Amino acid sequence: MIEFRTLANGHPDLAHSPLLRAALLTMQYAQKHGTIGLTKTKSFKRAFVHWAVEHFDWPGKSAEEMFRYNKVINEYEFPPLEVLHYMLISLRLGRHFKGEFQLTKQGAHLGEDAGRLFAKLIPYFLFQIDHASYARLDERPFGEWDIWMNVINVEADHGTTEAALFETFYGEPEDWHTVGWRDMAAFSSCVFRPLEWAGLLTETRDDGVGKHVCHVFKTPLWRSALKLDTDDMLRPISVQ
């Protein structure tokens, strides 16, 4: 079983969630300006997309990096915004009206309460969104969230690697240099990346010569926001 605790507005651990931060910024922008302009295909207009790229401070997608090769960026080229836009509409926190995006009453209310917004947004993102779709993948990993998260809860409690976790679930010691790299990519895109976007995991990468190792750690938000069946299996963190 996976249970999300509702954290108080202003809880410091909420700052670990890139997706929550992006949602709050988008909702605050919509509140300040009244609406956000839409294209004919009902995507956010480029002016807002550029603002989002500059302000979201998205892991691995800095504004400098994104604008280095593309001076014009559309919504579909910035997946975090594309996914967030879809969720705000699906959860009825925002709506399209006369060629504009505007917040609903519920959206305006939750935009002022980060803890309740996290509890609304993140479970929907993790468990209802097709993560392979925005990752532009055909493959999806075999498994389900209840098992993935309860195992990661234990295995990553003191840090682990992406390859080690993959082997724990699937019994094959694959990495990015083996024929199983496609399976690793699907697992990374559909499990690790969503948990990182949610702010529950953080990753560091070693990219040396002939080496690509991804280290995985639980964030403080994982510990404060989640209640899992395997919590009683965790070892205390020793303080030196």
Results as ranks from 00 to 15, higher is better:
Gly171Trp: 12
Pro141Arg: 01
Met233Gln: 15
Glu172Pro: 05
Thr26Glu: 09
Gly94Leu: 10
Met184Asn: 02
Arg140Leu: 05
Thr35Met: 08
Cys190Asp: 00
Leu200Val: 00
Leu126Pro: 03
Leu84His: 03
Thr161Ala: 03
Asp13Tyr: 09
Leu93Cys: 06
Lys71Ala: 13
Ala163Asn: 07
Leu24Lys: 06
Thr39Ala: 05
Gly115Asp: 09
Ala108Tyr: 09
Thr35Arg: 13
Arg46Leu: 14
Glu3Leu: 11
Gly94Arg: 12
Lys61Arg: 14
Ala186Trp: 01
Phe125Ser: 02
Ser62Leu: 09
His16Asp: 12
Glu162Trp: 11
Ile152Cys: 12
Glu54Val: 13
Glu3Trp: 01
Arg182Cys: 06
Gly199Lys: 06
Arg205Thr: 12
Ala185Phe: 01
Cys190Leu: 05
Leu19Trp: 11
Val213Tyr: 08
Ala15Arg: 13
Tyr124Thr: 00
Arg92Ala: 15
Ile147Ser: 11
Val209Thr: 09
His212Ala: 02
Val216Ser: 07
His212Pro: 05
Trp51Tyr: 05
Pro123Gly: 00
Glu112Asp: 14
Gly60His: 04
Leu126Phe: 02
His158Tyr: 10
Leu234Phe: 07
Phe166Val: 13
Glu65Ala: 15
Ala15Gly: 01
Ala185Tyr: 00
Gly99Trp: 06
Pro220Cys: 08
Leu81Val: 00
His50Tyr: 04
Lys42Gly: 02
His109Met: 15
Glu139Arg: 15
Leu121Met: 06
Ile129Val: 15
Glu174Tyr: 12
His215Pro: 06
Arg193Thr: 01
Asp130Thr: 08
Gly171Ser: 06
Leu201Arg: 05
Asp157Gln: 15
Phe187Lys: 08
Gly171Glu: 07
Ala23Lys: 10
Gln31Gly: 13
Arg95Trp: 02
Tyr124Val: 12
Leu195Phe: 06
Val209Phe: 11
Leu7Ile: 06
Gly180Tyr: 06
Ile73Cys: 05
Leu81His: 01
Pro18Trp: 07
Met233Gly: 04
Glu64Arg: 06
Gly94Asp: 11
Tyr76Trp: 07
Trp181Asn: 02
Arg46Tyr: 14
Trp58Leu: 01
Ile73Asn: 02
Glu144Gln: 11
Glu3Ser: 04
Pro79Ser: 01
Lys71Tyr: 09
His158Asn: 13
Thr202Cys: 10
Phe192Leu: 15
Leu93Val: 09
Ala63Asp: 03
Ala164Gln: 14
Pro12Thr: 05
Tyr134Cys: 01
Val216Leu: 12
Leu24Asp: 08
Ala198Cys: 09
Glu65Asp: 04
Leu221Phe: 03
Tyr29Val: 10
Ile152Gln: 10
Ala22Glu: 08
Leu200Met: 14
Arg5Asn: 07
Phe118Leu: 03
His158Gln: 15
Gly171Tyr: 09
His85Asp: 10
Phe78Met: 09
